[in-house]
Computed example of a mutant assay.
Amino acid sequence: MRFPSILAANSLLALSLLLTACDSTPRERQAAVRKEVKELDTLARTGTRKLARLGKGAAQYRAAARARRAAPLDPQQERKMEKALLGTADRIPGLTPGTIAEAYAQLVRETRTRRPTWTERDWDYARNVYQRLNAQLKTIRLDLPARDELRIRTRQAEFVALQAGHTAKEINANARQLPQ
């Protein structure tokens, strides 16, 4: 929904009323107001329809994600995804304060590279690797230098942003598939 468009239309309405108020009759001003109100009403109705479709698309996406996440992840596929994202399998429990920042950097690099071809299930496995990295970070956080923690926070934010971008695209795709 475009709020600036509605605000711009309101501003134009006020400006046109001010400019025409001196040179027009009440009936002409009334017609101008009706026209502007009709345009605003159309914008509001269109925005409402778009918002409703996005809401339905989001609900469908959430339902599908809930059903998909109810199925357990395959341990072999988990190790395969960890190896693909971090370079080696079963690496996470061995990460130390000196190596965890690079693991997050590797995760984000690989996610950026691979995300265009990932399915929803691939994202589930990537999210699992990310959550396991976060769990390891909790165990070693007190020994982590502040500069590394800042780098890790940046990488965490980027991973979440990449994931949110994917989710937004999927919701939009679901909304587009809904009947008008």
Rank of each mutant, 00 (worst) to 15 (best):
L137M: 02
L95P: 13
L12W: 11
R147Y: 14
A65V: 15
I171E: 03
E82T: 01
P145C: 09
R79C: 01
E158I: 04
N128V: 02
R176F: 03
I140V: 13
Q106T: 09
R109F: 06
K138P: 15
L73A: 09
Q30L: 07
A32I: 15
P116C: 00
G87N: 05
A105M: 11
A32L: 15
Q177Y: 12
T48G: 06
I100G: 03
A84K: 11
R153W: 14
Q77R: 11
D143H: 11
E149M: 12
L54P: 09
R132Q: 07
N174Q: 13
I92C: 02
D90K: 04
Q136Y: 08
A52K: 13
L142G: 15
E82N: 04
V108K: 05
E39F: 01
I152R: 01
P116K: 00
E149F: 10
T154P: 09
L107D: 06
Q177C: 13
L7D: 10
R66W: 15
T48H: 12
A146D: 12
Q136F: 07
T154D: 11
P4W: 02
A175C: 09
R114T: 09
E82C: 01
A64P: 03
R29P: 08
W123Q: 02
R112H: 12
E36V: 14
R91E: 01
L40Q: 05
Q77E: 12
R155T: 14
A103H: 00
G47R: 02
W118T: 14
E158R: 06
G55S: 05
A161M: 15
Y130H: 05
P97S: 03
E110S: 01
G55C: 06
E36Y: 10
R109M: 05
R2C: 07
Q106H: 08
A64Q: 07
A126Q: 13
Y61S: 13
Q30M: 04
A173G: 11
R53N: 11
D74S: 02
